[in-house]
């Protein structure tokens, strides 16, 4: 048991240490010779807590093995790493038959779960980060869908207005041509000015549309990378 990479200590029903392995010597800095015959709870007073000592006594009476988790207790036999941080341990307490009827010792098996705890913490952190990013992505996607819908409505309204303006301009020009063919040139100048005004308004609206398209492009650039359209082979874009 001395060679096992876990801390092992055996106590008798008087709570005196009967065995203290090399691993525990190394972890705690307490030599086996000093620990043998000592009351374990005097060295580690945390063991005297009611929820702990009662369960130790259950095992010493031959009860079922007891598990002390690292989340609830951190450790039962405290020990520290060279940098001063506490070694996180999972401890199992096993009854050992002494051979004398009705008398049991209890074996502490202390596993160092510090590395596992750190790994689990970082996996949890990564998982929480991923979930956070997914949530952000979902929100951004909803915002982009809304923006896209606004733009579509805006485009539909403006193309309809442009079509009307172009139809008006075309009608005016047709009328001017008919009047000129009929030799009536009196109102042509006024009508041509109206057409020019209409065309100017069309040009203005087209500029606005152009600006709206540029703004959307900027929005897409501001969006998280997974929303930037990738160029397709045919030159169009496709959302990633």
């Amino acid at each position: 048991m001395d060679l096992l990479p876990v801390g092992i200590c055996i106590i008798d029903e008087g709570l005196k240490v009967r065995y203290w392995n090399t691993c525990l010597e190394e972890w705690t800095g307490m030599p086996t010779a000093d620990m043998l015959g000592q009351d374990l709870t005097e060295h580690f007073p945390g063991l005297k807590k009611s929820g702990v000592i009662e369960r130790i006594r259950q095992v010493l009476q031959g009860g079922a093995p007891a598990v002390f988790s690292s989340q609830i207790h951190i450790c039962l036999i405290p020990s520290y790493f060279p940098d001063g941080t506490m070694r996180v341990q999972r401890t199992t307490l096993i009854p050992l038959n002494t051979g004398s009827e009705g008398h049991f010792n209890a074996m502490f098996v202390c596993e160092d779960v510090s590395a596992l705890t750190e790994q689990v913490k970082s996996v949890r952190a990564m998982r929480n980060q991923t979930l956070h990013e997914l949530e952000e992505r979902r929100k951004a996607e909803l915002a982009l869908i809304a923006a896209h819908e606004d733009l579509r409505t805006y485009l539909a309204e403006n193309t309809s207005r442009l079509r009307n303006s172009l139809n008006n301009a075309a009608d005016d020009l047709k009328m001017i041509r008919q009047e000129m063919e009929a030799g009536d040139r009196d109102g042509v100048g006024t009508k041509l000015r109206d057409v020019i005004v209409t065309i100017e308004s069309i040009e203005k609206r087209l500029s606005e549309l152009n600006e709206a398209a540029r703004e959307r492009q900027r929005e897409i650039r501001r969006a998280p990378p997974y929303f930037i359209p990738e160029p397709r082979d045919d030159g169009s874009t496709n959302r990633r």
Partner: peptide, 10 residues
Amino acid sequence: DAIRTETLME
């Protein structure tokens, strides 16, 4: 996860 199931085990 592994650490939390250990707590449940206790």
